[in-house]
Write a protein that binds this DNA or RNA. Structure first.
Lengths: 344, 344
DNA sequence: CCAGCAAATGGGAGCGCTCCCAACTTTCGA
DNA sequence: TCGAAAGTTGGGAGCGCTCCCATTTGCTGG
């Protein structure tokens, strides 16, 4: 049903074969295939028939060579360790990107970069212009991979930004608002000793979430105390350690806002081990609303960020950027919302 | 640091430019670039120098056109609904595949197929020979996507198989042994009314896990009763429903083996709602050892399948198949092991 | 009835690379 | 010392497609 005649790579019909069968020139066939104007109805039908008969499919390499377009975009995930697997966030991004791209002719190249070797390989790859644009998530402030991508001058869209003055286009979620509403929720519950576990501070999202925490506290007239702030790296283990640390410094804390669900899960574990009841003794709020949040015990109150939509928006932005290169860069902020469950 | 001179696509140096600068012919440069033998040391250094000086990177489209290789493989995930996001299994596969591929020149194309439109697009894509091989996971028995792939004649490796007489190469985990040991564990705990929630029966893995369940029971001289068997589709909701159904039919059951962690999580929820204690009243075992298993309450006993290794093995097999096409197809079975936690 | 213009069409000239062969060197054995 | 074998090298001939221009065809108006 798919490839006619001998399925081998060699026998595949070319533009020329179609032209011959349809009794027209290559140019005409090309026009039909690419939906260009200026083809008589008669010629068009003849060509379409020939295409169907031969089962013609254009050779992308040849097209690429002639047009110097790649018809592909890369999604770069600089994943340290096992984050890809443990954080469904990435999977959602992938889904969003893929679904948006499926409307187009563009292919999606997935590039996981963790080692130095892979980074070098990426450099050559991008310089080889095998893609028309680049999507990149999980960017750290001085990420060499991001710099590499930026230096290629390819259309690029980031998921998240490196700093407030991010020169590249990006899609971000409202980290400030999300964190703020999480902490406000905690305060609304009457909690006053609210701690926070941040993500890695070389990621802007972490800083902004911390800032949201600060603002909510200040607005409520509650002092921001550094013993109530601990740092993690988004991983579950780091959340567990940070929580233990917090508990050691501030035994009286009655709530904690974690910059990721994974860390919140770790924190919950640490709290349980310390004999604290959740949420009675300590209320916990996470960030992401990953599937995990519905499986912790108690279920987790968390800030939902629309990760799939984020992937979609990234892809859309990239398409625009590819279509109109040089245009000034754009950014999209997606709103977050608090999902209240049992833990707070 | 990456692209010299005017970064624009046009100004990029070609093979010819390198040849000119090095004072040799195109053939020699090509030989050097491709590490072919038969180049004098003198010529080789001259070429290498020129390449460095010009920052030359071969144009892949041109190479593809000339060699009719694509230097890429596709990973096809026929994902229904949100499975990609909810099942870290896929993420692990991706990681494994990507890490194995990073040793090579091959690029990884990710193709998510869920709609009919996307399937048609895939057909054209594969016929366009844009990849040298195909990797595919989550295959259903009469999966049209799998048939499509098979019909292209491209080197292909499946994750899982469609039936016992799967003609394509595949990597599979020991579903039979895994299920068997899970149920044996349950029996060892003294449980005698052991139920099971299967996956979709149009997937071989589901059938085999069910078979493992049967055998363990039979070996122990325990009758296999159909009221103790319910069917799900690997999703959490289906697990919940199936468990409710089971409870209705067989209130006295004291254990349940679920063909996926997600369904086990759903089952646990249903049990809790029905007032059954886990594992006191009903012991639960899942399958996959997804991250989720460590977050349920109680934590889940489950069968671990090495999903990342599965991805790796798939990639390795595909590389072999691409290198030596026509060679008879191969299969690899990865062993599973039981991870005992609190739920059983 | 024909000049004059627009629409349609054919096909040459690449795109940058690999393949392969003819030609040239060098080396070695007799 | 010479011919043959082995080692090198250059570059023509594509790979299949798009771009673009010259040419042909089909109309319209004077």
């Amino acid at each position: 049903m798919s490839s006619r005649s001998a399925g081998r790579g060699e026998g595949r019909p070319t533009l020329e074969a179609v032209a011959a069968l349809a009794g027209v020139g290559r140019g005409t066939v090309s026009r039909v295939v690419n939906g260009a104007a200026g083809v008589s109805p008669r010629a068009r039908t003849a060509v379409e028939q020939a295409i169907a008969e031969l089962g013609y499919v254009p050779n992308r390499a040849a097209r690429s060579l002639a047009t110097s377009r790649a018809d592909a975009v890369a999604l770069i995930i600089p994943e340290t360790e096992t984050r890809l697997a443990s954080e469904p966030f990435f999977a959602s991004i992938i889904r969003g990107v893929a679904s948006e791209l499926s409307e187009t002719e563009l292919q999606l190249l997935l590039i996981l970069v963790s080692t130095e070797r892979e980074r070098r390989r990426l450099a050559g790859f991008l310089d080889g212009r095998r893609v028309d644009g680049v999507l990149m998530v999980s960017v750290h402030a001085d990420d060499p991979v991001a710099e590499l991508v930026e230096s290629t001058g390819l259309p690029t869209v980031l998921g998240g930004r490196r700093s407030e003055l991010e020169p590249l286009s990006y899609v971000n979620s409202d980290n400030l608002g999300g964190a703020w509403s999480a902490v406000r929720h905690l305060l609304g519950l009457g909690r006053r000793r609210v701690a926070t576990i941040t993500g890695p501070l070389d990621m802007e999202a972490s800083c902004v979430r911390l800032e949201g925490y600060r603002r909510a506290l200040e607005e409520a007239g509650v002092a921001v105390e550094s013993p109530l702030i601990a740092h993690g790296d988004f991983s579950e283990e780091s959340g567990e350690e940070a929580m233990a640390e917090l508990l050691g410094r501030e035994p009286a804390l009655d709530a904690v806002f974690c910059a990721s669900d994974l860390m919140a899960a770790g924190a919950m574990r640490a709290l349980r081990r310390a004999g604290r009841r959740i949420p009675t003794d300590v209320a916990v709020v996470g960030f992401d609303d990953s599937p995990l949040a519905r499986h912790t015990e108690p279920t987790m109150t968390t800030v939902r960020q629309p990760s799939e939509e984020m992937g979609r928006a990234m892809a859309r932005l990239l398409l625009e950027e590819i279509a109109a290169p040089g245009r000034s860069h754009r950014q999209i902020i997606l709103s977050t919302d608090l999902v209240v469950r049992e833990s707070a």
